[in-house]
Protein backbone atom coordinates (compact mmCIF):
# COMPACT_ATOMS: atom_id res chain seq x y z
CA UNK A 1 0.00 0.00 0.00
CA UNK A 2 2.82 2.37 0.96
CA UNK A 3 4.53 1.49 -2.29
CA UNK A 4 1.39 2.47 -4.29
CA UNK A 5 1.17 5.78 -2.41
CA UNK A 6 4.86 6.38 -3.09
CA UNK A 7 4.29 5.73 -6.80
CA UNK A 8 1.20 7.97 -6.91
CA UNK A 9 3.08 10.80 -5.28
CA UNK A 10 6.44 9.96 -6.82
CA UNK A 11 7.51 13.61 -6.97
CA UNK A 12 7.71 13.67 -3.18
CA UNK A 13 9.68 10.46 -2.95
CA UNK A 14 13.20 10.78 -1.67
CA UNK A 15 15.40 9.41 -4.42
CA UNK A 16 18.27 8.51 -2.14
CA UNK A 17 19.11 4.88 -1.48
CA UNK A 18 16.87 3.57 -4.27
CA UNK A 19 16.70 -0.20 -4.22
CA UNK A 20 18.18 -1.56 -7.45
CA UNK A 21 17.74 -5.31 -7.84
CA UNK A 22 20.06 -7.43 -9.96
CA UNK A 23 17.96 -10.22 -11.42
CA UNK A 24 18.44 -12.88 -14.06
CA UNK A 25 19.16 -16.55 -14.68
CA UNK A 26 22.04 -18.35 -12.91
CA UNK A 27 25.61 -17.69 -14.09
CA UNK A 28 24.77 -14.56 -16.06
CA UNK A 29 27.14 -12.40 -14.00
CA UNK A 30 24.83 -10.60 -11.56
CA UNK A 31 27.28 -10.85 -8.66
CA UNK A 32 30.26 -9.99 -10.89
CA UNK A 33 28.53 -6.75 -11.90
CA UNK A 34 27.33 -6.00 -8.36
CA UNK A 35 30.89 -6.63 -7.11
CA UNK A 36 32.32 -4.28 -9.71
CA UNK A 37 30.00 -1.47 -8.59
CA UNK A 38 30.48 -2.09 -4.87
CA UNK A 39 34.26 -2.42 -5.16
CA UNK A 40 34.51 0.77 -7.25
CA UNK A 41 32.34 2.90 -4.98
CA UNK A 42 32.65 1.38 -1.49
CA UNK A 43 35.93 -0.50 -1.71
CA UNK A 44 34.27 -3.80 -0.75
CA UNK A 45 32.86 -6.60 -2.86
CA UNK A 46 29.39 -8.01 -2.27
CA UNK A 47 29.72 -11.77 -2.74
CA UNK A 48 31.74 -14.63 -4.16
CA UNK A 49 31.58 -15.64 -7.82
CA UNK A 50 32.11 -19.06 -9.34
CA UNK A 51 31.75 -20.96 -12.61
CA UNK A 52 29.47 -23.36 -10.71
CA UNK A 53 25.84 -22.27 -11.15
CA UNK A 54 23.89 -21.02 -8.11
CA UNK A 55 26.93 -19.61 -6.30
CA UNK A 56 24.65 -16.87 -4.92
CA UNK A 57 22.00 -18.64 -2.85
CA UNK A 58 20.84 -15.78 -0.64
CA UNK A 59 19.81 -12.23 -1.39
CA UNK A 60 22.77 -10.00 -0.51
CA UNK A 61 22.84 -6.24 -0.49
CA UNK A 62 24.99 -3.20 0.08
CA UNK A 63 23.45 -0.03 1.48
CA UNK A 64 24.36 3.51 0.55
CA UNK A 65 26.48 2.91 -2.51
CA UNK A 66 27.26 6.44 -3.68
CA UNK A 67 27.97 6.57 -7.39
CA UNK A 68 29.37 9.60 -9.18
CA UNK A 69 29.34 9.78 -12.95
CA UNK A 70 29.82 12.75 -15.29
CA UNK A 71 29.30 15.22 -12.46
CA UNK A 72 26.09 13.58 -11.21
CA UNK A 73 25.65 11.65 -7.97
CA UNK A 74 23.21 9.07 -6.69
CA UNK A 75 22.99 6.77 -3.70
CA UNK A 76 21.76 3.23 -4.24
CA UNK A 77 21.01 0.10 -2.29
CA UNK A 78 22.44 -2.65 -4.48
CA UNK A 79 20.46 -5.89 -4.12
CA UNK A 80 22.06 -8.96 -5.67
CA UNK A 81 19.70 -11.93 -5.99
CA UNK A 82 20.13 -15.67 -6.62
CA UNK A 83 19.64 -16.70 -10.25
CA UNK A 84 16.08 -17.70 -11.07
CA UNK A 85 15.59 -21.14 -12.63
CA UNK A 86 12.75 -23.61 -13.11
CA UNK A 87 14.79 -26.69 -12.25
CA UNK A 88 17.56 -27.62 -9.84
CA UNK A 89 19.35 -30.95 -9.97
CA UNK A 90 22.15 -31.61 -7.49
CA UNK A 91 23.74 -33.99 -10.03
CA UNK A 92 24.53 -30.98 -12.24
CA UNK A 93 26.96 -29.78 -9.56
CA UNK A 94 28.82 -33.10 -9.37
CA UNK A 95 30.46 -32.35 -12.72
CA UNK A 96 32.27 -29.44 -11.10
CA UNK A 97 34.01 -31.74 -8.61
CA UNK A 98 31.61 -31.01 -5.74
CA UNK A 99 31.02 -33.91 -3.33
CA UNK A 100 27.53 -35.47 -3.35
CA UNK A 101 26.52 -34.21 0.10
CA UNK A 102 27.72 -30.69 -0.66
CA UNK A 103 25.94 -30.78 -4.04
CA UNK A 104 22.68 -31.76 -2.32
CA UNK A 105 23.12 -28.96 0.22
CA UNK A 106 23.85 -26.50 -2.59
CA UNK A 107 20.71 -27.61 -4.47
CA UNK A 108 18.55 -27.20 -1.36
CA UNK A 109 19.92 -23.72 -0.68
CA UNK A 110 19.50 -22.80 -4.36
CA UNK A 111 15.77 -23.67 -4.34
CA UNK A 112 15.27 -21.54 -1.22
CA UNK A 113 17.32 -18.75 -2.79
CA UNK A 114 15.04 -18.64 -5.83
CA UNK A 115 11.98 -18.34 -3.60
CA UNK A 116 13.72 -15.54 -1.67
CA UNK A 117 14.64 -13.69 -4.89
CA UNK A 118 11.02 -13.83 -6.08
CA UNK A 119 9.74 -12.50 -2.75
CA UNK A 120 12.09 -9.50 -3.03
CA UNK A 121 10.71 -8.53 -6.47
CA UNK A 122 7.90 -6.44 -4.99
CA UNK A 123 10.37 -4.44 -2.94
CA UNK A 124 12.49 -3.12 -5.82
CA UNK A 125 12.43 0.46 -7.11
CA UNK A 126 14.14 -0.54 -10.36
CA UNK A 127 15.72 -3.70 -11.73
CA UNK A 128 18.84 -4.46 -13.74
CA UNK A 129 18.30 -7.73 -15.58
CA UNK A 130 21.65 -9.34 -16.21
CA UNK A 131 21.74 -11.83 -19.08
CA UNK A 132 24.53 -13.82 -20.67
CA UNK A 133 24.75 -12.32 -24.18
CA UNK A 134 26.19 -15.57 -25.55
CA UNK A 135 23.00 -17.47 -24.60
CA UNK A 136 19.52 -17.54 -26.17
CA UNK A 137 17.60 -14.56 -24.69
CA UNK A 138 14.16 -16.10 -25.30
CA UNK A 139 14.15 -18.46 -22.32
CA UNK A 140 10.86 -18.49 -20.44
CA UNK A 141 12.59 -17.53 -17.18
CA UNK A 142 13.80 -14.26 -18.75
CA UNK A 143 10.34 -13.55 -20.17
CA UNK A 144 8.65 -14.42 -16.87
CA UNK A 145 10.89 -12.06 -14.90
CA UNK A 146 10.35 -9.23 -17.41
CA UNK A 147 6.60 -9.92 -17.55
CA UNK A 148 6.38 -9.59 -13.78
CA UNK A 149 8.34 -6.34 -13.74
CA UNK A 150 6.13 -4.98 -16.52
CA UNK A 151 3.00 -5.93 -14.56
CA UNK A 152 4.41 -4.24 -11.43
CA UNK A 153 5.49 -1.16 -13.45
CA UNK A 154 9.07 -1.44 -12.19
CA UNK A 155 11.61 0.26 -14.50
CA UNK A 156 14.05 -2.15 -16.16
CA UNK A 157 17.52 -2.00 -17.67
CA UNK A 158 18.74 -5.06 -19.56
CA UNK A 159 22.46 -5.75 -19.31
CA UNK A 160 23.87 -8.06 -21.99
CA UNK A 161 26.89 -9.34 -20.10
CA UNK A 162 29.89 -11.35 -21.30
CA UNK A 163 30.46 -9.37 -24.52
CA UNK A 164 34.06 -10.58 -24.31
CA UNK A 165 32.89 -14.07 -25.33
CA UNK A 166 33.11 -15.03 -29.01
CA UNK A 167 29.46 -16.17 -29.13
CA UNK A 168 28.15 -12.94 -27.59
CA UNK A 169 25.32 -11.35 -29.59
CA UNK A 170 24.08 -8.03 -28.20
CA UNK A 171 21.94 -7.37 -31.29
CA UNK A 172 19.93 -10.53 -30.54
CA UNK A 173 19.36 -9.22 -26.99
CA UNK A 174 18.17 -5.87 -28.36
CA UNK A 175 15.82 -7.66 -30.77
CA UNK A 176 14.40 -9.78 -27.93
CA UNK A 177 13.67 -6.80 -25.65
CA UNK A 178 12.96 -3.87 -28.00
CA UNK A 179 11.06 -1.86 -25.38
CA UNK A 180 13.93 -1.77 -22.90
CA UNK A 181 17.36 -0.16 -22.99
CA UNK A 182 20.02 -2.83 -23.53
CA UNK A 183 23.67 -2.25 -22.64
CA UNK A 184 26.39 -4.69 -23.65
CA UNK A 185 29.18 -5.04 -21.06
CA UNK A 186 31.74 -7.43 -19.73
CA UNK A 187 31.62 -7.38 -15.93
CA UNK A 188 34.67 -9.64 -15.79
CA UNK A 189 36.77 -7.21 -17.86
CA UNK A 190 34.94 -4.03 -16.82
CA UNK A 191 34.25 -3.20 -20.50
CA UNK A 192 31.70 -0.53 -21.54
CA UNK A 193 31.09 0.61 -17.97
CA UNK A 194 30.64 4.26 -19.06
CA UNK A 195 27.63 3.23 -21.16
CA UNK A 196 26.37 1.15 -18.25
CA UNK A 197 26.53 4.10 -15.83
CA UNK A 198 24.78 6.35 -18.40
CA UNK A 199 21.97 3.79 -18.60
CA UNK A 200 21.87 3.29 -14.81
CA UNK A 201 21.39 7.03 -14.20
CA UNK A 202 18.63 7.10 -16.83
CA UNK A 203 17.00 4.08 -15.14
CA UNK A 204 16.84 5.80 -11.75
CA UNK A 205 15.20 8.83 -13.36
CA UNK A 206 12.30 6.57 -14.38
CA UNK A 207 11.57 5.55 -10.75
Amino acid sequence: MLKILYRLFGVFKKKDNLKIGFYGPPNAGKTSLANLLCKDWTGEELGSVSEVPHETRHVQFKEKVEIEHKGKKMVLKIVDTPGIATKIDYEDFLGYGIAKQDAKKRAKEATQGIIEAIKWLDDMDAVVIVLDSSENPYSQVNLTIIGNLLARKIPVLVVANKIDLRKSNVKKMEAAFPEYPVVGISARKATNMNEFYDALFKLTKRV
Binding site: I84, I114, I115, I118, V141, T144, I145, N148, A151
Partner: peptide, 9 residues
Protein backbone atom coordinates in the same frame (compact mmCIF):
# COMPACT_ATOMS: atom_id res chain seq x y z
CA UNK B 1 3.08 -13.25 -15.26
CA UNK B 2 2.21 -13.51 -11.57
CA UNK B 3 0.97 -17.07 -12.15
CA UNK B 4 4.16 -18.02 -13.99
CA UNK B 5 6.34 -16.70 -11.17
CA UNK B 6 4.12 -18.41 -8.58
CA UNK B 7 4.51 -21.64 -10.56
CA UNK B 8 8.30 -21.27 -10.33
CA UNK B 9 8.06 -20.45 -6.61
Amino acid sequence: PEEEIRLIE
